[in-house]
Computed example of a mutant assay.
Amino acid sequence: MPLGHRIEDLKLPSLAVGTTRPEDRLATVTALFIHTERYTIEAIDWYLTKRRRPAQWSRLLRSIAVSAAVVGGIIPLVHGASPDLIAPDWGFVLLAIGAGCVLFDRVFGHSTSWSRFSRTGIALQHALARAQSEWVSAVVTLDPVQPGKEELRELLAVVERLHSKVHEIMQEETTGWIGYLAEGLEELNSTTVSRSSGSVMPGQTTRDP
């Protein structure tokens, strides 16, 4: 997926509820399960698709950081063996580029987003698989002609557990994203302030108070 490709937001689909007549209750409960199941599948696809862009950025930034660190560490050795080949200051430049890539990744959370989206998608898959198993186990034991109230309650309980679990997983991911965003902004501000306070303007001299 291209780095600039936009992914549509995840939206809850509309629900068309059937009638409440006793003979249609099983169909209504089934429609509710299918609706919740469909939304869960869409959420899984959304998270697994959403992780691709952070994964691309994470690999790119980490590759640049590692390459810059390795080459930057070799440059002083090359300069020692052949002083006229390259200036040793280029090693510091490459090390600074590598550190900048790591900082960029930490502030914008590409690696963390990649991990968080993958973890959320897998958790949703586990919740869906468990709900589907519970639904099949409940359906095969009920009377298809006229299911009892307890049987219908058991089916509704499966739907409610799936809905609650999906909401819990997605809420946890959203809370983690908000927390990491605040931490990233704080780290960026602290880094900017520390570098600004430690820099000296041309023509200025530092002195003890």
Rank of each mutant, 00 (worst) to 15 (best):
V66S: 02
G72W: 02
T30V: 04
A68D: 10
S133N: 14
I74S: 09
H5E: 06
V158N: 02
G91I: 05
A68K: 05
T19W: 12
D89H: 13
Q146T: 15
D208P: 10
T175N: 04
Q171F: 01
Q146E: 15
P209R: 02
T36A: 06
G109K: 03
E183D: 08
R38Q: 13
I64C: 08
A123S: 07
T36V: 07
D84W: 03
I178Y: 03
A129Q: 09
R106G: 11
T30L: 03
P76G: 01
H126W: 09
W114Q: 11
A96W: 01
V107L: 00
L128K: 00
S197G: 03
T20R: 02
A27Y: 00
G72P: 13
T112Q: 09
V166C: 08
E23A: 07
L12V: 13
S82N: 03
T191F: 09
A138N: 12
G184V: 05
T40Q: 12
A69W: 10
E186L: 05
L10S: 08
I34R: 12
F108N: 09
L3H: 05
I169K: 00
P83W: 03
G176Q: 09
P202T: 03
V107C: 01
A55D: 10
I122A: 07
W177D: 12
D45F: 14
E183T: 04
S63E: 09
R195C: 10
S113T: 12
G80N: 06
